[in-house]
Amino acid sequence: MSDVVLKVDGLGKAFARNGKRVAAVSDASFSVGAGETLGIVGPSGSGKSTLSRLVLRLIEPDAGSVRFDGGDLLTLRGAALRSVRQRIQMVFQDPLAAFNPRAEVAEVISDPLRIHRLVARVDRPAAVAHLLDRVGLPGVLAERAIHEISGGQRQRVAIARALASQPKLIVLDEAVSALDVSVRAHILRLLVDLQAETGVSYMFVSHDIAVVKAIAHRVAIMDQGRIVETGPTGQVIAAPQSPTGKALVAAVPRLLQAQD
């Protein structure tokens, strides 16, 4: 495999619940290579969302290490951390909740360009138009408010915002789960195309192994805070080793076939 963008070792996080400490993630280790998509699959409550929030430093881990793009992500503070954030981005499940309800399309896409001083103010409208075009949206959308556009368009705007600072890794947390099936197919295709163009890596979190199969090179299966199985996607799905892996594969709804 080529360069490793993200390397996570022994990551752990426990939350206090009813006075007890409950492990949400324990001893998680995995890596994501350049231009690679790692699928993280598990039932609800398996800790996959907590894992993505840990990698993004939205919550602080209790144990373990996260190396990103050659540096230690966990020791960074303040301005140094904010500056690294240019290279690691995310896309949320609910594209409406992910944006400030007052925001406009142009504003949210140019935020990263402004914050990391990537594009001068006068050039930002052109940069926004270019980013919109890359995610398959017309430039006129720039002036619209986020609440005025459709759910599928919102998720494209979210991807444009995540791409704006040319990150090396994008964490997608159930990023297609709230979308209609036809929109979902388009967004997945878009993600694959963008990866081919830019070589960005994805950490793609989902409860649906069928979606992960469409997009991920490798897959890690989580259950009860632990990674119970990892491997190349096709191999894991064809012959899952863990009980959770088997259950996830068996639970995928299959279309009725003519010969059924």
């Binding site: 939205l58 954030r85 690691i88 992910a98 400030n100 915002r161």
Partner: peptide, 10 residues
Amino acid sequence: DYVDWARVIG
């Protein structure tokens, strides 16, 4: 979520 994302974009 949008406050989290504001943190994520730095």
